[in-house]
Design a protein around this nucleic acid. Structure first.
Length: 165
DNA sequence: GTGTACCATAATA
DNA sequence: TATTATGGTACAC
């Protein structure tokens, strides 16, 4: 049994797919890219997933929210991907790291491979790939669109001019 | 700005 | 199975 939770928060659509105990996917979409019309569908979802809706709303209203407690289904992805995502999950709210920093943790210099894996992140926000930026302080890419990445970092109060570690 | 080293995946042969 | 193409990078010019 799969559950789907659809939420609209100002110009953003968020769609979460879960099974009984794990989140399987989260999509983050700008309004213009959302294909279906109308308002979010109301369905019965597991209680812990309903809590996520509240957390998401709090997050976008500027509260400090830790999404780390939600169980994510990542076991079916490659070992390398899981390592990258696990490391990224540890980055605290309001802080950023560089792609190189992740590489150091994983003992690899395949920085582009890391970016590639992050671009395939099935759980934006929950795995905070928006907190991974280029070493020179510029944002780097974001699969859901650079505007969203910028906005997420602004919400968290992050400014990284001048480069980071 | 350009070139090159870097490494996981997907696409292609 | 082997080869190439493609990146959400980094670093030295």
């Amino acid at each position: 049994m799969l559950y789907s939770l659809e939420i609209k928060i100002d110009s953003l659509w968020i769609k979460v797919i879960s099974n009984e105990e794990e989140i399987e996917k989260l999509s983050l979409l700008s309004e213009n890219f959302f294909i279906e019309e109308g308002s979010p569908k109301k369905r019965r979802v597991p209680y812990w997933l309903r809590r996520l809706e509240g957390d998401l709303r709090n997050y976008f209203s500027g509260q400090r929210v830790d999404f780390g407690k939600y169980p994510l289904k990542i076991a079916n992805y490659s070992v390398f991907s899981q390592k990258v995502w696990r490391e990224v999950k540890k980055i605290p709210y309001g802080e950023v790291r560089s792609y190189k920093w992740i590489g150091k943790k994983l003992n690899t210099r395949g920085y582009r491979a890391i970016g590639r894996v992050l671009s395939l992140n099935p759980f934006p926000l929950l795995i905070p790939c928006h907190r991974v930026v280029k070493k020179n302080g510029s944002l780097g890419g974001f699969s859901q669109g650079e505007e969203i990445k910028k906005r997420l970092l602004e919400i968290e109060g992050v400014f990284c001019e001048g480069g980071i570690n």
